[in-house]
Design a protein around this nucleic acid. Structure first.
Lengths: 109, 109
DNA sequence: ACAACTCATAACCATCTGGTTATGGTTTGT
DNA sequence: ACAAACCATAACCAGATGGTTATGAGTTGT
């Protein structure tokens, strides 16, 4: 059966380079404050806040308030709907691409 | 090292439900004309044509002119940049998610 | 020859998006 | 107490986006 959960929000949120860069930093460096994220973001602090809101809307990040700072961390589980979608249609690509191997070759690092 | 190819176009193109539905039909049913795709798309023929242009821009579909009809087919190879991106960052999720297993459980059908 | 079909493009429109500056609430340091 | 720091929200703006109808170019069938 086809994927059950709507992956639109995840795709949309990750389709912006600035937003993807924020998510990447949170993946690589762990929990970070808005201030720290604004550092190398290349956009203003309010822009960063809005991007983080978008990511939170898609479930891709979680925030934790601590004093005057807000720590954000990545929630890779939120990628599930997107992975489901890819996985389902991969079943129809496999017979042209050589089973899951080519996919796994890319997935594994 | 981080992924080398920009996955923005792929993410962006797949972030629209109508566009994703077109890509899905092409994956499941193979080569189809614009007329056939317009059938169940829920939008007008020009809208379908524009969506197909967007998908072609991302390399996700290929078109073949035959008389007055244009056949489109899916190009799943174009997903590579997106898979690269997922794969690279999965290395950093693994130690929290239990290696590739959870990922593969979703990828395999 | 000509009507009908297929498709892409043009022109247009409303809404969404991604950015900015301004501001205000809360918390921290002095 | 008060200034400074951190962050979210408001207000605003230009450009992108996704839809429409109208049209025209090319192809097919009669």
């Amino acid at each position: 059966m086809p994927p059950n959960i709507e992956p639109t929000a995840v795709f949309k949120s990750l389709s912006d380079p600035t937003r993807r860069a924020l998510f990447e930093r949170l993946c690589l460096e762990g929990e970070l404050t808005v201030h720290a994220l604004t550092g190398r973001a290349g956009v203003s602090q309010p822009a960063v806040s809005k991007h983080l809101s978008s990511l939170r809307g898609a479930g891709l990040v979680r925030d934790r308030r601590e004093g005057r700072e807000t720590y954000y961390c990545a929630q890779p589980r939120a990628l599930a709907p997107m992975l489901d979608w890819i996985g389902f249609y991969s079943a129809f690509w496999d017979h042209r691409m050589g089973r899951l191997e080519s996919l796994l070759a890319r997935m594994d690092v």
